[in-house]
Design a protein around this nucleic acid. Sequence first.
RNA 1: UCCCGAGUAGCUCAGUCGGUAGAGCAGCCGGCUGUUAACCGGCGGGUCGGGGGUUCGAGUCCCUCCUCGGGAGCCA
Length: 432
Amino acid sequence: MPTRVEISALREHIGSTVAVTGWVLTTRSSGKIAFVVVRDGSGYVQGVLARADVPPAVWERFATLTQETTVRLAGEVRADARSPGGVELAVRDLEVLGPSRDFPITPKEHGTAFLMEHRHLWLRSRRQVAIMKVRHEIIQGIRDFFHQRGFFLVDTPILTGSIGESGGSLFETEYFDLGKAYLAQTGQLYVEAACAALGKVYCFGPTFRAEKSKTRRHLTEFWMVEPEVAFATSDDNMRLQEDFVTSLVARVLDRRAEELKELERDTAKLASIVAPFPRLSYTEAVALLRAQGSAIEWGQDLGAEDETRIAEARDRPVFVYNYPRGAKAFYMKENPDDPRTVLCDDCLAPEGYGEIIGGSQREDDYDRLAARIREQGLPEDAYGWYLDLRKYGTFVHSGFGLGLERTVAWICGLQHIREAIAFPRMLYRLNP
RNA sequence: UCCCGAGUAGCUCAGUCGGUAGAGCAGCCGGCUGUUAACCGGCGGGUCGGGGGUUCGAGUCCCUCCUCGGGAGCCA
């Protein structure tokens, strides 16, 4: 029995007889010659069967192959320019490992509702495989980036008491005799605590927002990476962000060119993502928008249309920094040069992909932070431990959160964020 | 929550002026030695989202409910 080889390694076995196991994508037959394309996760390969060269039993078995049948093919690896990928398998033996009847996703078009209903099977399509490989690369890039820069990974809790950025959008659950627990919508407050212990830290995990958002940029469950750096200012923070984002884009361009091609991504638009990113203060942004005819007033948060307008004029992400305090979270540090604003930034991705990062320098003054908590009507006792961080050796520190799926959607050029995660959780989607 | 839009064959859709339902793909049968979403011929396939109404007659017009999609707000 020939040795089993992964499809991605076939190129190294030209001339020898090997076996491949995987799932059937398509079959085609011309009576005396037949083709079968197989996927094994590492890649795709076309098997060719000539009726004259295989035993009749093997030829008849080929006729039973349907979409997504699990097969084992054995034969000689050869280079052939006519074959997709340039390498093909001259099949001599074929074994059905698992039959597949009436696979719902045919090689024709389908609507998104149908595809989402069959997400567990949709994942097998070439496009979805490519997206998941890019997502994997980005995740690995995130971990490597921070590891190489001396950050420590700290895992923050998913079940929390009543603490978070804001009250309204938390998923609730019962927690034994302790009352209500909430699914974390950020790890930030915890990562700030860890920051005082380890200096440079990050958390990376799922977060939950019970917002009834129904747009192509929103999920109710999404992954977020949140670094936090001791003794870093808002300016240091933005520099870290642009190094981070450019490193991720460069890594995907370098290592996932094949997948980007499968996704028909215009890589020229990614190749232009280099530091530094343009910076625009909130006040400048408002002036710019008003000059373009927007009705935005100073003090209002930027709308989706405003963000698009700012970002679409540029070939790389843009920072909008120092928003009015009323538009932002309680923990952001007051801007000493203009107390109407806070030291923060949003990083807006090009091509209309919107905000991929929100970051800020944190309020490190005990009294000002306590006042902000009271001002926003947050349960003060729940924030006792968070205030402690300012009581015992307070320190300048900054951090940000990058939304993984938005980043994946942008780098892959996806129309909708739901394709950026294997099993998206949305307002009307809890299954599969 | 609000504003648009869509529900017809397994899938994607067409269906004119209100007159008993149609195509492509998928499936099945047959043909073809280099196919790339192969191609060619044939066959089977319908609670027109649910309910109510108008009408001699409703996929089509009206009311209502349901489901889904897109967008806004909010955010990553």
